[in-house]
Design a protein around this nucleic acid. Sequence first.
DNA 1: CGCGCTGTTGAAACTTGTCAAAGTTTGTGG
DNA 2: CCACAAACTTTGACAAGTTTCAACAGCGCG
Lengths: 247, 247
Amino acid sequence: MAEHLAVHPITIDKLRVACSTCGLKELCLPMGLTNDEVSRLDSLVSLRKMFRKGALAYRAGDSFEALYALRSGFFKTTVLLEDGRDQVTGFSMAGELLGMDGIGTDAHTCDAVALEDSELCVIPFSRLEDMSRELHSLQSHFHKVMSREIVRDHGVMMLLGSMRAEERLAAFLGNLSQRFTARGYSASDFYLRMTREEIGSYLGLKLETVSRVFSKFQADGLISVQHKHVVIIDIPRLRQLVAGRTC
Amino acid sequence: MAEHLAVHPITIDKLRVACSTCGLKELCLPMGLTNDEVSRLDSLVSLRKMFRKGALAYRAGDSFEALYALRSGFFKTTVLLEDGRDQVTGFSMAGELLGMDGIGTDAHTCDAVALEDSELCVIPFSRLEDMSRELHSLQSHFHKVMSREIVRDHGVMMLLGSMRAEERLAAFLGNLSQRFTARGYSASDFYLRMTREEIGSYLGLKLETVSRVFSKFQADGLISVQHKHVVIIDIPRLRQLVAGRTC
DNA sequence: CGCGCTGTTGAAACTTGTCAAAGTTTGTGG
DNA sequence: CCACAAACTTTGACAAGTTTCAACAGCGCG
C-alpha cells in the first residue's frame, strides 16, 4: 500500500534529494555540519518518497533498513498491544527523524502513519553508520538526535505518569506551539493534523475527555478551538497550567 | 556527596576495570564484540566508582562527560517537574547503561540514584565516540543500545497511557522477572530494591494503589509478597493479566 | 529500644471513562 | 455540484477506577 502510494504524479527522479539545498538543514540531520560535510550527505540521502494521508512508511515487524527524515507533512507513530489496544507514541513534524526504534532489533517496533500528504527522505542506515565513522560531526549529531528522542520520551512519561487531563493537554499544546515556532509558523495559530482520538491516545486520555478539556480551555478564554483550528489566546496562562495548580 | 562516597575501603586502584574479564560482558557494552575488540574497550573503561545506597551518580543539570555501566547494584533515574513533582523514569540493573539522556544537550536531564550499594564503570563519552569510529561492531552495538532504550520508553508510555493499575503492576513484575532471569537469578523469587512509592511513581500510581494491588494479587494467589520479598506463584496468569481482561 | 520510614487498609471524594445521542465536517459518487 | 455516508466532535448522565485523607502496624537504623 505504501509502495503503491509512493508512485505519484511527481516521480522519484524529480525528487532528487539534496540536503545542501534543503530549507530544513538547520532542523534536520545536517544540523551543525559544514557545507562540505552536508554535500557528502547528499550522496547518502538520495531518495525521497511521498506518502498520501493514511499511508504507512513502515509498520511494526518490518525489517529495518533506513531512517526517514520528514521533509514535509505530518506523521504519527503507534505501538500495538497484543489485545488490540494501541497507543500513539509520537507526532513528527518536518525536519524530524523517524525510525530509530528499529535499530535495536533490526525490525521496526511501531507503525509510522502519514497524517497528511507527506514526503520522507530515505536515509539507508548502514550507510549512515559508515559515514558517521568518517565524519565526527555527523556521528556526534546523530547521537544527540537519538539522545533527545530518549529525553522527549521521558517528558511524555512524566506527562502520562503525573499530570492531570488539563495539564496534559496544556503541555501538548505548548509543545506543538514551540515546534511550530521553530519551523517559522505561528506559535499561537495552527491547525491540528490529528483527531481527538489520536491526541487522546498520545496523552493517555479518551477522546471525550480531550474534547471536554478543549471546551473548558475555550470557556476559560485560554484558547479558541474550532475543530482542527486552534488559536492560543493566553500562552502564559497555558504554560502556567502545565506545572502547577489551576491558579 | 557522590565523590565522598566513591572513597571506600576498596580503593579505585583495586577496582581496575577490565571488560575482558567481566562476567557481564554478554549483557553490557561489550556484547557481540570479539575478544580482541573487548580488550580495546579495557583502555576506555578504566575507572569504577562505588555508590552507597542513596548516593547520586549524577543529577539533572550536571555536565555530561561519561556514560555509566552498572557493574553491580541497582539504580533509579528520576526527572523533576518545576513544581516539585518528580517521576521515576526507570530502574537499572547490572549490565545496563546509564546516562544516555545527557548526550543530546551535554547535560544530564535526570538524577541517577543508587537504590543499594552499587558499582558503576565510567565510560568517557568522547572516547567512546572515538573508538566507535574505529570499531564498526562497537558503533553498531552502541546504536542498538540507544535504540532499545527508546523502545523500552515506548513500552512504558504504552503502560502509562493505556493500562489500568493491575495491568501496570503485572507488567512491571513480569519485566523485573525477565531481567532477573537474564542475569541468572530466579524468575519467580526476588527482592524489590525500591519502595512502593518509587514503584508507584514509575507506574503513574500512588503508593497506596500499588500496595492495594499487591495485596489483591496475593489474595488472588498470583504472588506472595512480604514487604520487599516477592514470589511469583502463577507466572502465566500474571502474563495474561498484562494484555487483556481480568479473565 | 524507640523513632522514623515504609507499608497496609478503610471510607469518602474526585477525576476520568463509558455509554448514548445528536451535531458537524469531509469525502465520494452520482 | 449536490447529496449522502462515514468519520469526527461535542455534550450529558452515570459508573468505575484511582486518589486523598487518615489511622495504624511493622521493620530497621542509630
